[in-house]
Amino acid sequence: MKNVVLLSTRRLPPAYFDTVREDLGDPNVTLDVVGWVAPAGPVADKVNSFTLIGPGRMPVAPTPEPVEEADPTEEAPDAVIAPEAVAGPEAVTADEAEVAPAAAEVSDAGPAPEPQPAPAPKPKPTGAKRVVKAVQWRYRRARKVAGRILPKAIKTSAPVKFLRGNRASKDLGKTYWGRILTRRDVLTTIEKADVVVALDAGAIWAGWNLGQRRAGTPVVLGIPAARRELDMLKAPAGNG
């Protein structure tokens, strides 16, 4: 049985790991995941281990509440209504007579409280404070104008999105790799792997560094490349 370690910085659904086994061509492959974010649902029955090294908590499967079975010999509480439980018209009239004086007492309690005066406005800044406020106002206005000068089409264009996403991936990739180096349990899991797979752009930096450190363990990008490596590992046993 081969062991595959998946490096991921994205939120993965539990069903994804079933797809991974199908794409790897081995339903019995052991999957260990090193994730930056928690999966979208419980994965205890999907993977051998899921080590969360980023923010958040692992999802927990809800515990079903026990259902109490009713005794068939017991009668329903509302099956019989006693005649004395129904109030007569005299009782309703008496209750209304008691409520009327109480309402009159509330109306005679006194006039409503007068509204509180509005707070006095803050004094405008003078002297040096006024100069500072003016500079701050001009700075904020200049930033807004600069933002309007750049057309929206450029802000939302594919090259700009790519550059922003690439920068974010680099920052996340370095943080992800640094966290792996501080976790002895993660390094032990990686040492037992037959193949290490970086699943996304945020995990590429960690995969590249692991490939430099562990020349004997294939470290690849994507599941198709992992499938080729597993097929090569199985080939000697089949030829023998």
Rank of each mutant, 00 (worst) to 15 (best):
A103Y: 09
W205G: 09
R11V: 07
V37T: 10
K124V: 09
G56N: 10
A112V: 10
V145R: 14
G127Q: 06
W36Y: 13
D194E: 00
L221M: 11
D108Y: 02
A146G: 15
A70V: 09
P151E: 14
P224W: 08
G54R: 08
P111E: 09
M232L: 14
D200P: 04
R21I: 01
K133I: 05
A215C: 01
R179P: 01
A198D: 03
P115E: 12
E84F: 08
V4T: 01
P72C: 04
V80M: 06
R183W: 00
R143L: 15
G110I: 08
A146C: 08
T182N: 11
A142G: 11
A134G: 15
A201N: 13
E75M: 05
G35Y: 00
L150R: 15
V37S: 07
E98M: 09
A206C: 05
P125T: 08
K192H: 04
V67G: 05
E65C: 02
K170G: 11
W177R: 13
E22R: 12
P77T: 03
T182Y: 05
E90V: 13
A118T: 12
T30H: 03
A102W: 03
P72D: 03
A237W: 02
A193F: 00
A91I: 10
P59V: 11
P27D: 07
R21Q: 04
N209G: 06
A38Y: 02
A61K: 15
S169W: 02
A100Q: 12
L7M: 03
D78R: 04
N209H: 13
R164G: 10
F17P: 03
K192A: 08
V37E: 09
V43G: 02
A40Q: 10
A104R: 15
P111Q: 05
K122A: 15
I180C: 05
A193P: 00
T9D: 06
T188G: 02
R184T: 14
V33A: 02
P55H: 11
G238S: 14
G41A: 09
E229G: 05
L24S: 01
V5I: 01
M58N: 07
A76V: 00
L199V: 06
D23V: 03
T51I: 13
K144C: 07
M1H: 04
T189L: 06
P64M: 12
Q116P: 11
P159D: 12
P39M: 03
V60Y: 10
K124S: 11
L7E: 02
T9K: 06
F17N: 04
I190R: 01
P59Q: 11
W137D: 13
A103C: 06
G88T: 15
A158S: 13
N239L: 15
T93E: 12
L31V: 03
P115F: 08
V34N: 00
R143G: 13
T63A: 15
R184S: 14
W208M: 11
M58Y: 05
K155S: 12
A153H: 07
Y16S: 09
L210N: 04
R11W: 00
P59T: 12
G35S: 06
G147N: 15
V20H: 00
Y16L: 10
T9G: 04
M58W: 07
E90D: 15
A112H: 07
T188E: 09
N3I: 00
V47W: 00
A128G: 11
Y176C: 06
K170E: 14
V33C: 01
V47R: 03
T51C: 04
E74H: 03
L6E: 01
A44L: 07
S49W: 00
I154G: 12
L12Q: 12
P39K: 06
D23T: 08
R140Y: 13
T182M: 12
